[in-house]
């Protein structure tokens, strides 16, 4: 372990690296920052700075890093005068949270079985799960369409939820964490006469909780952002999630569109900040080979 002074001299020596990384970090943050600051501009100021781009008149674009007259008016307008926005926000929630709940309930036991049992066909089955995990949406979109229309589920929230629940990705992530639980703990419980389900529920689930969290946060970000499935399986606009609704308001109501973008970003950013540790652990786990 290096001493604190050693670490500080390290920093001192490496300051160009830190400057470079800070600039890069700023670049990564730039779009988010711009969106957030622009959302605090009133309609007049917005038209002044971005009007030319968004087709609402105005000469050329003025790059203004900070709003001159910050106002919460766009947010007030969004929350009070755009009933559509609430509907879509609620739609997003109705599609994302059932998926997360279902994935956890269905995925946890499956991941436990893969991690802790040896049974005939395990290898082939796990391989199948991994292949399904890497398949892009376009591969499964026809087959999902066929089954959803057979079950007359097209254009319902279930058309988004059901295929999402049976995604194999969370199983893969949770399996990694379940497998890391030391054998000795389970052995001790078995000696004490605990049954298979007791062991799963009272030892596996609590100790594998970071894995469950990782799967949850990764999938929350994925489905909050989902576009392909809602675009394909939903027809009625009243059922669209936020991700499909946002692009449509951009042209006519600029200030509202900035505010709406920020409100949509907020749960994702909060989730990110809250679960960053789990997120990183989950990403790292998805990279480890079987």
């Amino acid at each position: 372990m290096k001493s604190l002074t050693q670490r500080f001299t390290g920093v001192h020596r490496q300051w160009p690296v830190y400057v470079f990384l800070s600039l890069l970090a700023l670049l990564m943050l730039f779009p988010v920052l711009t969106m957030a600051l622009s959302s605090l501009m009133g309609p007049g100021e917005l038209r002044e700075s971005y009007g030319a781009v968004l087709g609402a008149g105005g000469e050329n674009i003025l790059w203004k890093p900070l709003p001159q007259y910050p106002t919460l008016q766009p947010f007030v307008e969004l929350l009070l005068d755009s009933p559509d926005f609430f509907v879509m926000f609620w739609n997003s929630c109705r599609q994302v949270f059932p998926i997360l709940l279902g994935q956890t309930m269905v995925g946890m036991p499956a991941a436990w079985a893969f991690a802790r049992y040896r049974f005939p066909g395990r290898k082939v089955l796990f391989w199948l799960y991994m292949v399904l995990m890497v398949m892009p949406f376009q591969v499964t979109m026809v087959s999902s369409y066929l089954v959803l229309s057979r079950l007359s589920l097209m254009d319902t929230h279930l058309a988004i939820c059901l295929p999402g629940i049976f995604s194999t990705f969370p199983v893969f992530i949770m399996e990694k964490f379940f497998r890391a639980i030391p054998d000795s703990l389970l052995e001790a419980a078995r000696v004490d006469g605990a049954g298979a389900f007791t062991i799963f529920w009272h030892i596996g689930v609590p100790l594998g909780l970071p894995g469950v969290m990782s799967a949850l946060i990764l999938n929350f970000l994925e489905y909050w952002n989902a576009m392909e499935a809602p675009m394909t399986f939903l027809k009625t606009k009243a059922k669209f999630p936020l991700s499909l609704y946002l692009p449509e308001i951009t042209t006519d109501q600029m200030s509202v569109s900035f505010a709406a973008s920020v409100v949509m970003m907020l749960p994702a950013i909060l989730g990110f900040l809250w679960g960053q540790e789990y997120l990183q652990a989950g990403i790292a786990a998805s990279g480890l080979k079987e």
């Binding site: 890069l24 970090a25 990564m28 943050l29 779009p31 988010v32 711009t34 969106m35 971005y50 030319a52 781009v53 968004l54 050329n60 674009i61 970000l221 909050w224 952002n225 576009m227 936020l242 991700s243 499909l244 946002l246 692009p247 951009t250 569109s257 900035f258 973008s261 920020v262 949509m264 970003m265 994702a268 950013i269 989730g271 990110f272 960053q276 997120l279 990183q280």
Partner: peptide, 25 residues
Amino acid sequence: FFLLPMAIPVASVVVFWRMLFHTDG
């Protein structure tokens, strides 16, 4: 910081990309 863009929903920064890459952008 580097991981943050992964969390940002595409739809919520699309206005920014449009502003950035527009002819008068």
